[in-house]
Amino acid sequence: MYRLEYLANFARNKEACAIITNQEFGITNPFSLEDSRHTKTLQKRIGEIFGREYVQFFGCTKEDFIALFLKLGATKSALSVGFSQAAYQSFNFFENLQKLIMPTPQSLCTHNAQYYFIPYIDEDILRINPILEYAKALDSMGREYVLFVEISALLQVGAWESITSLSHPNIAFVVNAERIGLMPRSGCIIHSIPHLTQHIDSLLPNGFLESLLYVCKQLQNDTHLWQYCTQNYNALLLENLQNLLGDRIGVFTPLQECFGNCLALRISGIKARVLAQSLLLEDIAIINGMDCLLGNFKPSFVLRELGYEDAHCRELISISFMNLSPSDLTLIAQKIAKICEITQALEI
């Protein structure tokens, strides 16, 4: 199977998950001095990897984000629509939660917020956000703020230099642990902001920190991940598709704003769901976006927020991949083109 949803559907790390499932009890005993010392040791080791002081469990579910916005204050919070599918659902709960659509350093300063939630890479459209430029713009306003940055994708591609570069003290990292191979409904917020600790108080599942440390070390040692991303194979795939399908092929996000293994592909006149179903017969897995992956059968919520009509939203193929060779990508382009021609001829 050729998988083109690497970032959205990351492979489960069975060894790391076993660390959690093999625990005798579900929750660490808060009254045990031995458990407390062990937890602090693990938090310190994980914090050192990210250059931060605090590591706090956060489930990254819709319910977790709603609870966090309640504690921080929705009126004081601004959420980028591309942060995550789970976080995006908070807009259905809070009328006064500020919405960020394709933020720029200048537009951030127009929001009277204290807490900003922006992903390093936007969901679905796979656009890299200039986080340090955002922080610089907010610094220039001279007010207190916290910039929550979703960095799961950075871990998935081994972009550790990018993580290290985000050393600004007002930046807090959000990691969805499921996106790096751990169990669903698990994750953490990693930061060095003392007052945040009182707002993030989820129970710590036994074995979570051990499994997180295991995965982080594994990803940190896999230098091949980032080396692969620097090859810009997304340009090769796009070129092959353009040669086969001509001006029907476009992108929602310019290649220079994506990692080299990502492509927000647009195929004019094609319904992504029909294409996805057909390509499964060719051993190719694709998605229209996170709603598509989760079986909601809705076009990309990110593109809808950007103002695209539903018909155009359905033309998105949110592509990310790892360890596919140039010959693999050439074959994939041929198969995609074949299915596109068939569906167009049949007017599906």
Rank of each mutant, 00 (worst) to 15 (best):
I128Q: 14
F117P: 01
D124I: 01
D139C: 05
G158M: 08
R143G: 04
F117W: 06
A153T: 11
V157M: 12
G142I: 01
F148E: 09
S152N: 11
L132E: 15
L154D: 09
Y115K: 11
P130V: 03
L154C: 12
M141V: 14
I118D: 04
Q156F: 04
L132S: 15
L126D: 02
M141D: 07
V146C: 14
Y134K: 12
P119I: 10
I118Y: 00
V149S: 07
V149N: 07
L147P: 02
R143I: 06
S140K: 14
E150V: 00
M141H: 01
Y145S: 12
I121R: 13
A135H: 09
F148I: 06
A159S: 15
R127Y: 07
L132P: 00
L154T: 06
P130E: 13
G142R: 03
A159V: 06
A135M: 09
Q156D: 05
D124V: 00
D122W: 00
I128V: 13
I128K: 15
E133T: 07
P130R: 14
I118C: 02
G142M: 11
S152M: 07
A159H: 11
I131L: 11
I151G: 08
E123F: 02
P119L: 04
D139Y: 07
L155Q: 05
D124Y: 01
V149L: 03
F117N: 03
A137S: 15
M141Q: 15
L126C: 07
G158V: 04
Y134E: 08
W160T: 05
K136E: 15
S152G: 09
R143T: 13
L154G: 06
I118F: 04
D124H: 06
S152Q: 05
E144W: 02
D139I: 01
V157P: 02
E123C: 12
W160S: 12
